[in-house]
Amino acid sequence: MNKDDFLLAVEGLTVSFDGFKAVDDLSFYLEPQEIRVIIGPNGAGKTTVLDLICGKTRATAGSIRFRGKELTKMKEHQIVHAGVGRKFQNPSVFEDLTVFENLEVSYPMGHTVMGSLAFKRDAAVIEAVESVARTIFLHDLLAEPAGLLSHGQKQWLEIGMLLIQKPALLMLDEPVAGMSVAERKKTAELLRVITRDHTVLVIEHDMQFVGDIADRVTVMHQGKVLSEGSIDHVKNDPRVIEVYLGH
């Protein structure tokens, strides 16, 4: 397979913070429509990998190719327009805007200064917002300020804000962390819907959940790939067992 046949090809990716290599010569490849889960102990560098892909952190070395484009040289908003959507670990939604407005701001139109001044809330926008709102269980709360949502609802809203962008790659950082049991179940349901027609890169700890959704699992440890393959493969990899249970 040629490098550009992959949706995402990460090669030799390295970032060092004052000499500390949070991500160290990391390589992995994502195929279109693949659901990939990254697991690993705290501090393994998982979040940093997503930061590097979406442009929040700049790589010290290595390459990130996405649909034939080199992301390491692009600005954050250009990476979004190239088709990468990213959800943060802590829910980040616009608390002073309503649920509707949160989704509308994320709608992929009118993203320039002039475009946003001229932007009209037309039928297509309303339709898109309402359809996504139904998917994320917030259809009845469209007029609420997002600041009034529960923690779990904010997580869903942020996922909705990504969905409305129609990204070719969705990256989710611990989407069920901090959720109640009921919210977890609904989120799992939501993710199953999403994964049907998106390529998804997700960081998660819940092994049950990982086994449920993952096509392939990448295990990270100290900034490197420790193991990669099906969930059963990595679960039985002695190095993975060593890292998780060895100390």
Partner: peptide
């Protein structure tokens, strides 16, 4: 208003 709240989220909304 969104920027005042969550500058990064605005940036990563494109």
């Amino acid at each position: 208003v969104a920027m005042r709240d969550q500058e990064n989220r605005v940036r990563f909304s494109g």
